[in-house]
Structure formats: C-alpha cells, structure tokens
Amino acid sequence: MTGLCDGRVVIVTGAGRGLGRAHALAFAAEGAKVVVNDLGVDPDGTGGGAGPAQRVVDEIAAAGGEAVAHGGDIATADGAASLVATALEAFGRLDTLVNNAGFLRDRMLVNLEEDEWDAVMRVHLKGHFLPLKYAAAHWRAEAKAGRTPEARVVNTSSGAGLLGSVGQGNYAAAKAGIIGLTLVAAAETGRYGVQVNAIAPAARTRMTERTFAETMAAPEGDAFDAMAPENVSPLVVWLGSAASAGVTGRVFEAEAGRITVMEGWRPGPTADKGARWTPAEAGDTALKLLAESEPPQPVYGAR
C-alpha cells in the first residue's frame, strides 16, 4: 500500500459488514486510524451487539493497524455526538467521515407502511445528517481556531436515489435526499476546509444479496469478483484522503472496475413567453420541449 492516509483518523458508519467493513479495512491498509461504527443488527434492523464492529477492529489490529469500535446509534443526537467524541478521545483528531450505515424495508408503495417509511428515512437520511452535523461542527471550531483541516466526508447514496427503484420508494427517496444533503453540505462547509462527496455503489452485501442473488453471486476460482464490496473502497479511500483536494459536491457511481461521474439535474430545453401561459399553451410548449429533450434513464425494476 502507498500510505495515502497516513496520520488521518477516519470514521466509517455501518462498518461491521459489507461495504463499511471493506472501507474500514481499506483505510487502515493505507495508514489511517479507524473508528468502526456498527450496531450489529440483523438485516431487518432487529437484534444488535458489539460483535461485528469488534471483529473488524480485531482484523485491523491483526494487520498492524489501529482502530476502535463504536456501537452507538448514529441516527440519534447522542449517538452521533459520541461517535465524533470517540474519534477525538481515541486518536486526538478527526479527518474523514464515511456515512455508510443503512438497511431496507422494501415494499410497493400501496403496501408500504408508515413505520417502514420512517425507519428507512431515519437510518439512511437522519443517519447521514447527524454524524455530518457533529463532525462539521468540530471542523468549524478547528477552522475558527486557526487550524483549518483537510476534512473529507463521503456519503453513500445509490442508483435507486439517482434513478428510482421499483419496490423501494422509501429507500429511493432517502438516497435521493442524501444527494441533496451532500450538495448543501459541500457548499456550506467548504469555508471550513471540508469537502463533501457522495458515491452510488453497486456491490454484493447483506442488503442486496436476496434482491440480486443470481447476478451478484461470487464467481468460482480466480475470476474477477465484479460485485465484491472491496471494489468500491479504493474510490472511497481516495475521496477520504488529502489527495482528493478540490473535489467536492460531486456524485460518483462505483461498481466492479467502473467509476462514473454522475452529472445530475441541469437545464435542458427551455422556452420563455415573457408573460403568463394559458394551460393549453403551457401544455403545448411542454410537449415541444420534451420532444427536444433527452429521454430519462429507466427506473430500476421497471418493465
């Protein structure tokens, strides 16, 4: 390894398994000290325990790195505040926050219960907002004290948040919200030395293994495992390092050996009457503009 993150302290949420574990190990391999956050819950959000986070800490220590476990609920103010405090108490600083924690409550909209909507919003969207809030407050204080950091935040969205996904209205809405949060945070915290970006990864994890059991199966032998979560981590490590200076407010897709910069919403065909339209005029104009525009990408799972 190159020591890309030597001296940096990195928090990774949801790091007991899957993508988060891969990120934590990859940061440690590049010299970072890592705070491994995980509640240790089952895929449906039930249960819990310190085992998964501690096992990752033990893996990092066995490889010669430094890490501590954090088992707090980062979708609560106390849990998010203690997460940042753990990094500062254990290692004396904080350089990078990787928001990764999440889970699923998949249903078609007409069957989606209010508590299933709320649970996914809480874990994904609130679970991004609160750690970001407390980390940003620390970095703002550092900047005001004359110690402007080279701070980095990597948020985790999804293709569902970019394009939508049938049967995942709650998840798609939360992941789209994370992109909006990323853009605002990048604009607001840049003055404090903070860069904020997002990834939309595709990988085999507990969240995806049932949905994509066939297409995401691990290959046999020495064939390239395109859906291994470890394929996503190199980009995350680079975004979380000082080497990514100048990159902020961007969204990247990462899958297998492919990295794509997502370009998002931007103005397309437009018309300006200079006065108020009638409904019929507005409709005729909208149809003409749509005929000149690029067709949208299909929603995942749409037929």
Rank of each mutant, 00 (worst) to 15 (best):
H70R: 03
A53R: 03
A63I: 05
D95S: 09
H70E: 11
R93V: 07
A69E: 10
L88G: 03
A69G: 04
V57I: 05
G71R: 05
A85I: 05
E59N: 08
T76P: 14
D73H: 12
G49F: 01
D58N: 13
G49L: 04
V57D: 06
G72S: 10
L94R: 00
A67R: 04
G65H: 02
T86Y: 10
I60F: 10
A67G: 12
E66N: 11
A81S: 15
D78L: 14
A53I: 10
I74K: 08
A80T: 02
P52V: 00
A75H: 04
L83E: 00
E59Q: 15
E59M: 15
A53H: 07
A63T: 00
T76K: 14
A85P: 07
I74G: 00
V56E: 02
T76Q: 11
T86W: 05
G92R: 10
G49E: 02
L94V: 15
A67V: 09
E59T: 01
D95K: 10
L94G: 12
G92I: 05
A67W: 11
A61H: 12
L94S: 12
A50E: 12
G64R: 07
I74E: 01
A81W: 09
G49R: 01
S82N: 12
R55I: 00
F91W: 08
D58K: 12
A87W: 03
L94N: 03
A85C: 07
F91K: 06
A63F: 05
A62R: 09
D73M: 05
A67I: 03
G65D: 02
L83Q: 01
G72D: 10
Q54L: 13
T46R: 06
A90I: 12
G45N: 03
I74V: 15
G65S: 06
P52Y: 02
G47D: 03
D58P: 06
T76F: 13
G47I: 01
V56N: 03
A77I: 10
G51L: 04
G51A: 13
V68S: 12
G45F: 11
E66L: 11
V68N: 12
D73E: 15
G72R: 07
V56H: 07
A69F: 11
G47T: 10
G47V: 08
A77D: 15
A67F: 14
A53F: 13
L88N: 06
T46F: 02
A67P: 13
G48Y: 03
A75I: 04
D44S: 06
G65M: 12
D44N: 14
A61S: 13
L83V: 10
A53Q: 02
R93L: 09
T86E: 09
I74S: 02
I60E: 04
G92A: 10
L83T: 01
A75C: 09
L83F: 01
G47A: 07
P52S: 01
G48S: 01
E59A: 14
F91V: 12
A61I: 08
A77Y: 07
G79Q: 14
L94Y: 08
G48R: 00
A81D: 08
A85F: 07
L94M: 12
A85L: 11
V84M: 08
G51W: 02
D58A: 15
G64D: 09
A87D: 02
A85S: 14
